[in-house]
Design a protein around this nucleic acid. Structure first.
Lengths: 206, 206, 206, 206
DNA sequence: CATGAATGAGCCTTCATTCAT
DNA sequence: TATGAATGAAGGCTCATTCAT
């Protein structure tokens, strides 16, 4: 009787999951374009028609997958900041945050997905709302830190904290893009940190 | 009589140009993958076989197109630097260089091609030697300026000029990538300049 | 109700058969190279994609076809030998075997397929394992007969039974090749028999 | 002035020869189908159009080439026979002829061309009159020898010398076909000789 | 005679999507 | 729900042949 219950709604969810997981796996090592619906359903062990019950199109699946993957990770930063000593220098905090982001990207998200995201975002092959959301979250985190620095009189910048936060994200993305292109010949974390140190110190002699 | 002369060789060049221009146009609004040889020859008004007289493959055309487009522009930077007053501050020179780069990208190369280049470079769908060459040239230019700043005692950086030059290019690429993604809602030159000013001044109060 | 049952699996088999039969027919009058997948599917009345559901490639179809055709026939020889009176002269047995082979080729396999096989085997355009297997079987049959002749002291040959068997097959293939080339102006069976009689009697007077 | 003379007719012949020789070379290592007109004219260093001045089609060239190649060689046999001692046994003469043929095929004509001929003959891709002529010449040679053997009372065959000659050629072709298929794992001359010895002696004990 | 640019039908193969069961 | 057979447009590419110069 318990088993029966499962049959309706749960089995359907299971099928969908099988498809998603298979796709996920395949996308890990291949670009979206080169993964066929055929290969996905084959790996999932379901029929092709089944795919189209759960997803309107291949693109729809990709969009959903992106959201899923991103949702998994964007929670970490805030708690990381909270875990830091409350009397820490904001500058050090900034470096620590940047290190944390590098760790997450390198270890949790992974090269393949990041590359896929950057690619998808650039080409708009796929609705990239999830990516935008991720960046929005990141932006908020940075703004919080920057504002703290300003509040505590640690920074001197001649732009708003909003604008500066955007610049920070821009740098991160630039370096990340570079990382995607030059992988594995470029150390993400090292370059993140180095660049923020540059930014903090400035290069002007005085 | 003059018209007659043209016929053989020149007409052939014209045909090739027709193909290149048609391709160029189509690539403006579509990704390389989604533009078919069929659509190119149709637009050019030539037979499919004609395409393969002039290009070994679709990829070969793209590569040639990329090279062509890039060749058009990479000569400008050095002469720009030379045109600046010789007693100019190196920091100002850096800003001026960065402004020039933004101008070239925005006006000479153009959004569409840059986007295509970044995309191609990321996916390695296409031989991106031209892009790499372009970056190498840019790198040299930066190094020259940075070295001047160091020589004249204007900078204070705790890394080699080589490494710093790489960082500069990384920033530019980061911002450019961002520009590609957010176009037209992001001013390339403004962000270039702003970020380099940040970099120059640093954000640390002292 | 009976009709309904047929639908799923059986209809699929039917489709495959339609393709195979169409191909078979087309190959009858044309070489493998000149029969296009297009023509096959058109004749079969199915879509091009359907072809690739059932066959990995055009070559795969050809290979399957060859195997199919050959499988149909290579069982007959052994039982034919068994059907002969056990006290028959081995020389007569040899002639009888050769007659049987001619019959099979002429009637069961048919001119068109044989020609195709010889062609394919010569050019290696197609995996000719089936043909090789066929020959191996034939070789074994001959060796059996030759050995019997030697055991019973009916033959006098100054080579091993292995080598002589190979010669027998070589003759058969030679005559068959000739038949392919000169068809229909050459009687296969007549020439088979005549040549083996020659071989048996020798031409040397004594 | 002398040079001028050449220009008209001779230069034309030269051009044609360039084409023929290039084709010949290419056909040596490739099947007719896989050698393109493009590759031929490129190797010959002439324009594509030029090809069609001298040959109606690719097939026409092949036919002409075949004739040329065969003409080069079919003169040797008769003189070979004449070179033998006039009191030689006809049986030995037969063996000697067969050895000579093997030599010519193996050394003068060569594996590649023979294979091509057999292939072309079988598929009728190409007008194979030349091949037929060659065989007719061979047939005459054999008949001469056979008749001599009969005249001198050396043979005992229960068929006409015409028919027996045909059988001889059939064997040769069979073994040659085998050689084409199994090259280089089959010694042509050895098998020629061995088989004729078989034929001469017969296998029947008496 | 010679050229070589141009042709276009033809090739094999892929794949997202549909739909009857 | 689930199936999987069927679709057919599209893709990149080849090549014998023609024809204006």
């Amino acid at each position: 009787m318990e088993k029966r219950k499962k049959s309706r709604k749960e089995k359907s969810i299971e099928t969908k999951n099988k498809i998603i997981m298979s796709a996920d796996e395949l996308f890990k090592n291949n670009r979206f374009e080169t993964v066929s619906v055929d290969s996905i359903v084959k790996k999932a062990g379901v029929a092709k028609g089944t795919f189209y019950i759960y997803f309107d199109s291949k693109d729809a699946l990709i969009a959903e997958l992106l959201v899923d993957n991103i949702k998994k990770i964007d929670i970490g930063y805030e708690s990381h900041l909270k875990s830091l000593p409350s009397d820490m220098d904001t500058l050090d905090m900034l470096i620590s945050l940047v290190e944390k982001i590098a760790d997450v990207i390198d270890n949790s998200i992974g090269y393949d997905l990041i590359k896929k995201m950057y690619h998808a975002h650039m080409t708009h092959t796929v609705k990239s709302d999830a990516i935008i959301d991720y960046n929005r979250d990141l932006y908020k985190i940075f703004k919080t830190v920057i504002d703290r620095g300003l509040d505590q009189g640690e920074f001197k910048i001649d732009m708003t904290s909003e604008e500066f936060s955007k610049h920070c994200i821009m740098i991160l993305r630039g370096i990340t893009y570079e990382w995607c292109v030059r992988y594995p010949n470029l150390d993400l974390k090292y370059n993140y940190v180095k660049h923020f140190q540059l930014l903090i110190e400035g290069i002007k002699k005085r």
